[in-house]
Amino acid sequence: MILGSCTSLQFGAALAAQLFPALGSWGVTCLRLGIAAIVLLVLVRPAVRGWNGGQWRAVLAFGLALGAMNGSFYAAIERIPLGTAVAIEFLGPLVLSAILSRRAADLACVVLALAGIGMFGLESLAGAGALDPVGVLFALIAAVFWGFYVLASSHVGRQVPGQGGLAVALAIGALALLPLGAGGALTAVTRPGLLLLAVATALLASVIPYTLELAALRRLPRHVFGILLSLEPAIATIAGLVLLAQVPTVYGLLAVVLVVAASAGTTITARRAQSRGADDADRAARPAPSDGELETLPVDEYPAALSVQAIAEPEAVTGQFPVLDPQEHEADDVGGPDRP
Score class of each variant (00 low, 15 high):
Pro303Lys: 07
Pro21Lys: 05
Val247Gly: 05
Leu151Lys: 08
Ala278Tyr: 05
Leu229Arg: 09
Val224Ser: 02
Ser25Thr: 02
Leu40Thr: 06
Gly34Phe: 01
Met119Ser: 06
Val260Cys: 12
Gly184Glu: 00
Leu43Ile: 08
Ala273Tyr: 03
Phe148Cys: 09
Cys30Met: 08
Gly335Ile: 06
Pro221Met: 13
Val323Ile: 03
Gln246Asp: 11
Val207Gly: 11
Gln55Ala: 07
Ser307Trp: 14
Pro287Ser: 09
Ala331Gln: 14
Ser154Lys: 05
Gly63Glu: 03
Leu96Gln: 12
Gly173Glu: 08
Ala305Asn: 13
Ala239Gly: 06
Leu43Tyr: 13
Leu43His: 07
Gly92Leu: 01
Val136Ala: 09
Thr269Arg: 13
Pro233Val: 07
Gly226Ala: 06
Arg158Ile: 10
Leu228Glu: 10
Val247Trp: 11
Val136Tyr: 09
Leu23Trp: 00
Asp300Ile: 09
Ile77Thr: 10
Ser101Phe: 02
Gly162Ser: 02
Pro21Gln: 11
Pro287Thr: 12
Gly50Arg: 12
Gly181Thr: 02
Arg222His: 11
Ala284Arg: 10
Pro314Trp: 12
Arg191Met: 09
Ala185Val: 09
Gly173Leu: 05
Thr201Cys: 12
Glu315Phe: 15
Phe225Thr: 13
Ala108Glu: 10
Leu112Thr: 05
Thr187Phe: 13
Asp132Gln: 01
Ser153Val: 11
Leu306Ala: 05
Leu244Ala: 04
Ala234Phe: 02
Asp132Ala: 01
Gly319Lys: 11
Gln320Cys: 04
Pro287Lys: 08
Gly181Arg: 06
Val39Cys: 14
Gly183Val: 09
Val44Ile: 15
Ile2Asn: 14
Pro161Ser: 06
Ala198His: 12
Pro221Gly: 10
Leu243Val: 12
Ala142Ser: 02
Leu186Arg: 15
Ala215Pro: 12
Arg158Leu: 07
Thr237Leu: 10
Ala75Leu: 02
Val111His: 07
Leu40Glu: 02
Tyr302Leu: 15
Leu203Ala: 10
Leu294Trp: 04
Thr211Ala: 11
Gly129Asp: 00
Ala169Val: 00
Val323Thr: 11
Val136Ser: 04
Ile172Asp: 01
Gly27Ser: 04
Ser124Tyr: 00
Arg158Thr: 07
Asp291Gln: 08
Pro322Ala: 00
Asp280Trp: 12
Val110Ile: 14
Asp132Pro: 01
Gln309Pro: 15
Val160Lys: 05
Val95Pro: 10
Arg102Cys: 04
Asn70Leu: 04
Ala142Arg: 00
Pro287Ala: 14
Pro133Ala: 07
Gln327Tyr: 04
Ala76Met: 03
Gly71Asn: 13
Ser101Asp: 03
Leu131Gly: 03
Gly50Ser: 07
Pro93His: 08
Pro221Trp: 13
Leu241Pro: 10
Trp26Thr: 13
Ser206Tyr: 06
Asp280Ala: 07
